[in-house]
Design a protein around this nucleic acid. Structure first.
Lengths: 189, 189
DNA sequence: AATCAAACAGACAGACCTGTCTACCCTTTT
DNA sequence: AAAAGGGTAGACAGGTCTGTCTGTTTGATT
């Protein structure tokens, strides 16, 4: 007997379309600014189908954050590897790729925490996990010595500052230049 | 003759109450999360009175940002002066005062830009002005040499990162420790 | 061929949001 | 005394939001 009969398919064409559509809208225009109806219309599904896969909007937001995490970390690790020859400056060159994209609108995790405040603690926890993973990636890109842990944490903090600055100035270099200065100072002590 | 007859009083008890109420709600719960009705109820005025002073919600948000700017910069300059004996670390001690307040919920300007996206360019411009003034205050707290300008810009970027980290970790020291490390590295080259 | 899950189609409820409008009151100024 | 500005009180319009519901069609498995 199968007592999982009530669960929808864990994966399906409709579910994928909903998730990808939600990703583009939530990231590009904001979670709060994007209504469920808009996701449904753009994904080309119906309300019943949508609610079969995602019982509430919060469930969709959570799926969006996980999806975004996978996507972003894969890109970030790859970009750091491609710029490994730049040493500790690899992160600056990686971020430049991101900041200059026309779709850039800051960090999805920071944005979501700011937009929804502390009203959904689960989102904050997911965001902390994301930032921890980002910090670990940065640490792995540094020479492994006694200070790499603390340096990675400091660089990650500066990266968040750079993301925010790129977001409100719409100027990648205005964010990357001070970031370079900070990293340079940190690793050349 | 008085051709300003149609303008409401530039200052009045009701207007002050609306603005202070809006400040607490907009900062504490978010601009988007706070409805006009809530501001009106908490301020103890009526809708007609509210709309006499602020023709639209956006007008109130703009007044809120100016009010917040005055309030925050006054505190920040004072805090930097009080911790001047700490040298370049003054900013860390100043921020500790803020981060440990129970009402701390990040930077009102970053939050507003993130919440409303680019939908209201005026808010982005006000936020850039605020960050410029913050950077200038930081610069004035540093020894005036050839690198103070660039250092202030870098520290301001790190401060934004620290604000964000304090906001999503709810842990002041988790933000202040890496910030200290960055500043220390920067000024001790 | 029968069955069943998944998707389609779209009406509907109930809440909340911004902003308008009518009517009355009180205080200050003229 | 009268006029006028700022306030109280609250109904109302028109839109948007999340989420529920009824019923139909399609397609794959059995």
């Amino acid at each position: 007997m199968n007592d999982m009969a009530s669960k929808p398919a864990p994966t399906s064409a409709a579910r994928e379309r909903i998730l990808r559509t939600a990703h583009d809208l939530f990231y590009g225009e904001g979670v709060r600014a994007t209504g469920i109806d808009r996701v449904i219309a753009d994904a080309g599904v119906t309300k019943a189908t949508f609610y079969r896969h995602f019982p509430s909007k919060n469930d969709l937001v959570e799926a969006f954050l996980h999806f975004r995490h996978e996507r972003w970390m894969t890109w970030f690790d790859d970009a750091l590897a491609r710029h490994a020859s730049e040493g500790p400056m690899a992160v600056v060159h990686a971020l430049r790729e991101w900041f200059t994209q026309s779709t850039f609108r800051g960090c999805a995790f920071i944005n979501t925490v700011v937009e929804l405040g502390g009203s959904v603690p689960a989102f904050e926890a997911i965001s902390r996990g994301h930032k921890q993973d980002m910090t670990d990636s940065i640490r792995r890109s540094l020479p492994a010595d006694a200070s790499s842990e603390a340096n990675a944490s400091a660089i990650a903090l500066a990266v968040d500052g750079a993301i925010i600055r790129a977001q409100y100035t719409h100027d990648a270099e205005a964010a990357l230049l001070p970031l370079s200065r900070l990293i340079q100072a940190l690793v050349s002590r």
